[in-house]
Nucleic acid binder design. Structure first.
Ligand SMILES: [Mn+2]
Ligand SMILES: [Mn+2]
Ligand SMILES: [Zn+2]
Ligand SMILES: [Zn+2]
Lengths: 130, 130
DNA sequence: GGTGTGCATGCAATTGGATTGCGTTGTTTC
DNA sequence: GAAACAACGCAATCCAATTGCATGCACACC
């Protein structure tokens, strides 16, 4: 299923802006902040606010995952589909600000304690900044 | 060790503002946002910005833990000492915004993957909001 | 118990990410 | 093609977090 079909399946209109954002997220190896996405799309005469609204809209229909790193900014990444990943934990280094995707089963949470987990976010220092 | 001694041991001057903030955090059952702390201290003619700087100062010397809930605001709670707790994971319900402290060992992270963990933050839906 | 030094505070102003309002543009449906 | 309505551009706003600076207070030293 290509990007246009995914948008149509989500009942979102197919626009050049949405396709650009989806393509950009597809290239990323980890979650991107709104600022990062907007910066890479500077050449496309796409307003920053529009990029934000696109990211929110894609999140609401489930095409994108939004997570909150320890630094207080939202980060977005493609979900499911050919290019995307399924939800998984993230690790943010407080020193170098690097965000790392962790394997889905790298964090174990006893189901008795928490139900309906949406996001797992770990902060600390990476090996380089140890 | 009472609050004054803890401040002195941390090489911070003992002020009425810092004592108030520490006392307020001691009463809390979970991490409090800056806004919550400031609101409860309204009667004490203590400036909001000062409350913020106190929270940051206490965090820097290790008397307080600062964590970032899934909603993008910082939350603070007493660390160690008689009234405080040791660092532990937190669960934030995205619907009712409730923050729950989890037992220290409720989340297991294989040490090979991540070093120097500072904070573990889980977001989702609590049992009530299931 | 006074006094000086430097940290702490109050207040005003600023930052920066997130959010909204509204008129215009563009996509989809018929 | 035209009508209906979602998406967009642009300006403005919100609010937690942050900073600057003049004043006030804690505490070490006398
Ligand atoms: Mn990821
Ligand atoms: Mn806690
Ligand atoms: Zn690092
Ligand atoms: Zn809830």
């Amino acid at each position: 299923m290509d990007l246009r079909e995914q948008l149509r399946a989500a009942k979102l209109k197919v626009t050049s802006g949405r396709l650009s954002v989806l393509r950009e997220l597809g290239r990323a190896k980890g979650p991107m902040s709104h600022a990062e996405v907007a910066e890479r799309l500077e050449g496309e005469s796409l307003d920053k606010v529009t990029v934000w609204r696109i990211l929110v809209a894609l999140t609401e229909v489930g095409l994108v995952d939004r997570s909150n790193g320890g630094d207080g900014t939202w980060r977005f990444e493609l979900r499911s589909g050919s290019l995307g990943h399924d939800p998984h934990p993230h690790f943010t280094c407080l020193v170098c600000k690097t965000v790392t995707c962790l394997p889905h089963d790298s964090v174990r949470i006893p189901p008795r304690i928490v139900r309906g987990v949406v996001d797992v976010q770990i902060t600390g220092r990476c090996e380089k900044c140890g």
